[in-house]
């Protein structure tokens, strides 16, 4: 958007999506497992980045909406036997609703105070989920959330031989792809441009007629809704919903995904999520000290590569182009 980058002529995103569709046939069961996790985390991280990278709001409590979505979907499906097709939109709306209520108070503050208030609300949500035995299962959580009924997929050509987990992977992939497309569209819209204006200069944005708080709240609600969607998918994928999902350290983890990939670019958090999930799998097979490794990665990022992976790549490509005699348009 703001950085010259003409890689768009090749439809990379479409190619990645099409390649990902083949995982159940070409990869192992383990690959499907990783793929599902990456897709869900990617959506979660991109939803956060609508606040972080687009609007310039440091939300340290985004995990609340992920967890709320997971609980709403899990409770509806497990306790009340509601079908997935209704539970999922309910999770979206429920998480967005909570984001509206919490966000209403949070956007009254700015900068670090905003970050602290979002953190506070997420801890309140955690405390409620952790203690409300009757509804959320308290510290025991909500185990055995059922898989959605995916028998209808058998009717589709080529899908009848697949395992349930493979089908769920395909469903997740499709839902995440649609959500990402929607988020990209929102960011590229006039509304999205108002959000970038707020990020760049809230004072000036107000004096071109933008009601800054209201737009921030709208972004907060949209981001919360998609985080809830990611959470709902994660609850099913993980076969249960637990209060851990809302613990404050998870907010930091998703933030690390976003900046590892690069907050300045739409696809940055997707790259960050994929990198972190795969790295985690690799490193935990060698050592139990994954948090230590993550901490070191984070330090290196903060001090040496604040633009993240995509930011670094774009800078590299632009540098090569300038050296190569530049057909740069700028």
């Amino acid at each position: 958007m703001t950085v010259p980058w003409s890689g768009n002529r090749i439809p990379w995103t479409l190619m990645v999506f099409l390649a990902a569709l083949w995982v159940p046939w070409l990869g192992s069961r383990y690959d499907t497992f990783l793929g599902t996790q990456i897709a869900i985390d990617a959506l979660f991280a991109v939803s956060l980045n609508l606040l972080l990278g687009t609007t310039g709001l440091v939300s340290f409590g985004h995990v609340a909406y992920f967890g709320i979505g997971a609980y709403i979907c899990g409770i509806l499906m497990k306790t009340y036997g509601v079908p997935f097709a209704l539970a999922l939109p309910a999770a979206w709306l429920g998480a967005a609703g909570f984001a509206l209520v919490f966000g209403f108070f949070c956007v009254r503050l700015t900068k670090i105070y905003f970050a602290m208030l979002t953190l506070a609300f997420s801890q309140i949500a955690w405390a409620i989920c952790f203690k409300w035995n009757g509804v959320t299962g308290g510290d025991q959580g909500l185990p055995d959330v059922p898989y959605p009924d995916l028998d209808w997929m058998s009717a589709l050509p080529g899908l009848d031989g697949l395992r349930v987990s493979d089908r769920f992977y395909l469903l997740t992939l499709a839902l995440v792809a649609v959500s990402l497309a929607a988020l990209r569209r929102i960011i590229g819209s006039p509304f999205g441009r108002m959000l970038t204006a707020i990020r760049e200069n809230p004072e000036r944005a107000a004096f071109i007629g933008v009601n800054v708080r209201r737009y921030e709240l709208a972004a907060f609600v949209v981001a919360g809704g998609f985080a809830g969607l990611a959470g709902a998918l994660f609850g099913i994928f993980n076969r249960g919903v637990f209060a851990d999902y809302l613990y404050w350290t998870k907010s930091a983890e998703v933030m690390i995904m976003a900046i590892l990939g690069g907050m300045e670019h739409f696809w940055g958090p997707v790259v960050g999520a994929a990198t972190l999930v795969m790295l985690n799998q690799q490193i935990t097979s060698y050592t139990e000290y994954w948090p230590f490794v993550l901490g070191v990665i984070l330090l290196v990022l903060l001090f040496a590569f604040p633009g993240g992976i995509v930011g670094g790549l774009v800078a590299g490509v632009n540098w090569l182009r300038r050296r190569g005699g530049g057909r740069q348009s700028a």
Binding site: F60, I112, A115, P291, F292, L294, G295, L298, L299
Partner: peptide
């Protein structure tokens, strides 16, 4: 402030382990 917050979080991860 984001970078400062995450810096202190990196310390949490490293010191904890």
């Amino acid at each position: 402030e984001l970078y400062q917050l995450l810096f202190t979080y990196a310390l949490v991860l490293i010191l904890g382990d």
